[in-house]
């Protein structure tokens, strides 16, 4: 385990019983001997097709799921011991944002919902007030604080969900496909917040289907059938054609084409932003 690893997976396997119609339950292996470390303050994207185990992986990080074998060490604590005593101590440090914005908001008033997490960990009321206001301002939802979630757009709801997580002041936020149900605009807003969180020094783990989003990370872990298929910087991942990595982002394709045409595009140009910056120079 590296010195400054915030989360560390050691030979983690996870299996569950799946019942199919009529037949005896079959044991399914969702994670198969997975090991990796996540550095404090890094931005890691986890990609992979449906059923590749990436969501299962994420749920191991805050003891929502416990490994069948192997161990997950978060902030130096094994999640198995943590879940016996006080899993909320661990979940305070590792926040999690889920896919469906509707199904993770608890209260019918935005600010009450953001306060839900801090209330659960027993923060004093004045402190909660401060954290709630700060978090809502950070996600730019402060003026909507008195509204009901059902009056907000999907992107706005997801921003409220993020505010609810950062109000607990976690060290690391795990995003489990946060943009899958949003329109392009909502997606851009969420990505901007994720970038902001990372710039603040929080560790960010982003599970996503969108390669454009993954390209913004420092590191991409590709999951395939419960195993890690690749684990490298975005530029390297996108250059490996044999991985069959889903969809290479447009910026990567364009850079490759430009390189072929004789332009000297530096390696590591994987986002449209960086490419545009380079081309405009």
């Amino acid at each position: 385990m590296a010195e400054d690893a915030i989360i560390s997976f050691k030979n983690v396997s996870f299996s569950y019983l799946q019942e199919e119609d009529g037949s005896a339950p079959v044991e399914k292996l969702a994670l198969d001997d997975v090991s990796f470390d996540i550095q404090r303050g890094s931005f890691v994207a986890i990609v992979g097709s449906n059923g590749s185990g990436k969501s299962t992986l994420a749920k191991h990080m805050n003891a929502l799921l416990l490994p069948t074998s192997g161990s997950v060490i978060v902030e130096g604590i094994d999640t198995i011991t943590a879940s016996d005593e006080a899993p909320w101590e661990l979940r305070k440090k590792i926040g999690m944002v889920f896919q469906n914005p509707d199904n993770q908001l608890v209260s019918s008033i935005v600010e009450d919902d953001v306060a839900f997490g801090p209330e659960n960990i027993g923060m004093p009321p004045e402190e909660i007030r401060k954290r709630v206001d700060e978090s809502l301002k950070m996600v730019d939802m402060y003026e909507h604080r008195r509204k009901g979630p059902h009056l907000l757009s999907g992107g706005q709801k997801q921003r409220v969900a993020i505010a609810g997580v950062i109000a607990m002041d976690p060290d690391c936020v795990v995003f489990d496909e946060p943009t899958a149900m949003l329109d392009p605009r909502g997606r851009r807003e969420i990505m901007a917040i994720i970038r902001k969180l990372h710039d603040q020094g929080d560790t960010v783990i982003l599970i996503t289907h969108f390669m454009e989003e993954a390209a913004e990370a420092d590191r991409i872990i590709v999951m395939d059938q419960g195993k890690i298929a690749a684990d490298a910087a975005p530029a390297e991942i996108f250059s490996k054609e044999d991985l069959g990595v889903l969809n290479v982002p447009f910026a990567v394709k364009l850079s490759a084409a430009l390189r072929k045409a004789g332009f000297d595009i530096p390696a590591g140009t994987v986002t449209e932003e960086k490419l545009a910056e380079f081309l405009c120079r």
Partner: peptide, 8 residues
Amino acid sequence: AMEARCYH
């Protein structure tokens, strides 16, 4: 989601 947000 509630569990993930420390509800106990």
